[in-house]
């Protein structure tokens, strides 16, 4: 059983004082999944990851990675985990190649073929000094070092930050290959759009506390979506639209109506079908709206 759990935390707490830190985190991440860790900056995502790597110690609680205790067995954990820190630096005078050589040596060497394939995939510029690299190119070196020893578990703090869209695509395909091989990815982000294409499940953290852990599809069904509807002829009464199941709010702007709704779009679509709908525009729901919908759910109870 325990071998199927890649990461579990029990009451994991890091109290920095003044309400900052991470509080009573209970989390279970299954082997082979991509688990997204969402929250605004300062929510405690990086703190959690640093606790898992034993870079900082918990105030209380514990964490288990690959069946090993994050504190007592830290060295064994770090041997089997690849980590990309959120705001990391590398030796500025060294080239990417030299940095990777050093980090590979710390692991007793890595498969050169794997490392080269990663460098090719990301089109990393490894022959230039780190100091001369852009954020995105430095991030590539960070990603290569995290993946190059083919770890069973990847802990990636804001991995997509600074990557151009093309590199993001190759990163996504790499994640799929990794999880197809039964390995686990735990990645953080402060925007939903970064993780929604790759994550199976998502946890949302706010002010150091876990708000929710859910599958991305459940999250979507709960999340409030916004639809902008244009009408060629009659515009329905806002009260009628707001009376539909799931609809939270309807606002009319001339021949347009902004409708926000949660759950299935079906009742709304059926109701709109009676009208001459000239345009439909769906708005990307962002993390903040998902937070808010969870808050609203809490208030209603």
């Amino acid at each position: 059983m325990s071998s199927e759990i890649a990461i579990s935390t029990h009451g994991l707490t890091k109290d920095f004082g003044g309400g900052n830190g991470l509080f009573d985190l209970d989390l279970e991440i299954e082997a082979g999944e991509v688990f997204g860790f969402l929250g605004p900056n300062g929510a405690g995502k990086s703190t959690t990851m640093r606790l898992l790597l034993d870079l900082i110690g918990p105030t209380r609680g514990s964490a288990n990675l690959l069946g090993l205790d994050s504190r007592a067995d830290s060295l064994a954990v770090r041997r089997r985990v690849g980590f990309l820190p959120g705001d990391f630096q590398l030796y500025p005078k060294l080239t990417g190649e030299e940095v990777l050589d050093y980090l590979a040596d710390l692991r007793g060497g890595v498969d050169a073929a794997v490392r080269d394939a990663l460098a090719d995939r990301f089109r990393a510029e490894l022959d230039r000094p780190i100091a001369e690299l852009s954020t995105g190119n430095r991030q590539k070196v960070g990603l290569i070092q995290a993946f190059m020893h083919e770890p069973e578990l990847l802990i990636l703090d804001e991995p997509i930050a600074g990557l151009d869209p093309l590199v993001q695509q190759s990163f996504h395909s790499l994640l799929r290959e990794v999880t197809d091989a039964g390995r686990t990815v735990f990645l953080s982000s402060h925007t939903l759009s970064e993780v929604e294409r790759v994550a199976d499940r998502v946890a949302i953290l706010r002010s150091g506390r876990l708000m929710v852990v859910d599958s991305l599809s459940n999250l979507r069904s709960i999340a409030v979506q916004r639809l902008e509807v244009g009408f060629a002829g009659d515009v329905p009464a806002t009260a009628a639209i707001e009376a539909l199941p799931g609809v939270r709010e309807a606002r009319r702007h001339g021949s347009h109506m902004d409708v926000s709704f949660a759950g299935s779009a079906d009742p709304l679509v059926k109701a709109l079908a009676a009208y001459d709908v000239s345009s439909l525009r769906s708005h990307e729901d962002d993390l903040e709206e998902i937070f808010l919908s969870y808050y609203r759910g809490g208030e209603e109870r």
Binding site: R50, L53, L55, L75, A76, R78, R79, V81, F83, P85, F88, Q89, L90, Y91, L103, L106, R107, G142, Q145
Partner: peptide, 9 residues
């Protein structure tokens, strides 16, 4: 830098 280096074994 050490935050990355010390994430290694």
């Amino acid at each position: 830098i050490l935050g990355l280096v010390l994430a290694h074994p």
